[in-house]
Write a protein that binds this DNA or RNA. Structure first.
Lengths: 200, 200
DNA sequence: GTCACGACCGAACGATCGTGCTTTTATTGA
DNA sequence: TCAATAAAAGCACGATCGTTCGGTCGTGAC
């Protein structure tokens, strides 16, 4: 990895951390320059504009998500185990991947009304994740772990809700039992997808 | 209502709309002054600082929430109907109360890492809502609509998740079926709280 | 040995940020 | 109607915003 590429990566790492604390929009060239010990103009040797930087931060974070969540997930046996693995890793990601809040969650509410490349990238990332999740749920159905009338998109919607509630409870309310609550909600969701008798 | 108080209310109304579009942090004195057709210094006749303004915006929005969601809810018959009323009005609130996203959702992810009065107010509002919701669920239990081993806090957690997922799907993904999905998730949640047989 | 290039810096740009002070204009009560 | 008071404007401040430009190193190719 050449010099340029390595500082570029370092900048993106630092920018990701910063953005998780103050938001993608709150991210500033000046503070990022200070944090990376570069001059403001030095940053502009690597990025065309602040907006371009924001997009690249999202892409950078997305690659990390792929590495620590998606890839191990699809290496897990098809069916419910894979669904569980995905959920586990997603929750863990939210707790450990950033000093601040998950930048996708933060950026989603920040940019949902601001047309442009940042929003577009956000939507792309979300669609991608949704699609993967739909496939994962599909394996649980074809393996017979889930009923075959389960609505995968509805499942995805509700799972997203659990994760968002977890983020909310954990970061804003500092609820120590946030993760436990998320797991209970997840178990209930999975339980309602099982064939035949619903009672334990 | 005197002149001062009426412009003050007008400012808060405008500030709420603006904040729902660009976030509480993205809100600037300059743009708010332009939107209210006041000078920047004219604003400072009404508010001590930007931070104080942000807090007041949250309080202002909270009063609106009380009026259009909480009050009608507690006027509804105790038990499941009241729970449903709360959910209905909450979802409607998110879709109609702002031009942009719900400022509580936006502000929650923006300020969850920024200690200070804004965050404090946010937490206060959330606790308040959580407490009300817990009481509402309690009426459903005492009326026999819900089992008496239902965990009201868990219910609140999951309901929050549904509402957050709705916000996410609606605003970022522009999913036209967001509300329908929210209702299905809610029905499943309520269904799992019912006594005896879970199957329809 | 020099030439080109990538990496980075210093200084400055116009604009806007939040926030004071002083002055003018509206509103109000007697 | 007129003084008292409240409301808003005018103007300016230091700081910071994103961005540009000219320039200076070090490194590798020829």
């Amino acid at each position: 990895m050449g010099k340029g590429e390595s500082t570029r990566t370092a900048i993106l790492d630092e920018a990701t951390e910063l953005a998780s604390l103050v938001g993608l929009g709150g991210l500033t060239i000046g503070t990022l320059a200070a944090a990376t010990k570069l001059s403001k103009s030095g940053l502009y040797a690597h990025f065309a504009s602040k907006e371009a930087l924001q997009v690249e931060v999202l892409q950078h974070a997305r690659e990390r998500f792929t590495d620590v969540v998606m890839r191990p997930t699809v290496a897990t046996p098809r069916g419910e185990p894979r669904v569980r693995e995905f959920f586990d890793r997603w929750i863990t990601w939210q707790s450990t991947a950033f000093d601040g809040g998950c930048i996708f969650v933060d950026a989603a509410s920040e940019f949902d009304d601001q047309e442009g490349p940042v929003r577009d990238e956000l939507v792309r990332a979300e669609r991608d994740k949704l699609e993967s999740l739909t496939l994962i749920v599909g394996t649980a159905m074809s393996e017979g772990h889930f009923r075959d009338d389960v609505d995968a998109e509805q499942f995805a919607y509700e799972l997203e809700g659990i994760v968002l509630a977890h983020h909310h409870a954990r970061r804003l309310m500092r609820d120590g039992r946030a993760e436990e609550r998320a797991r209970r909600a997840f178990d209930r969701l999975v339980d309602d997808c099982r064939p035949v008798a619903r009672s334990a």
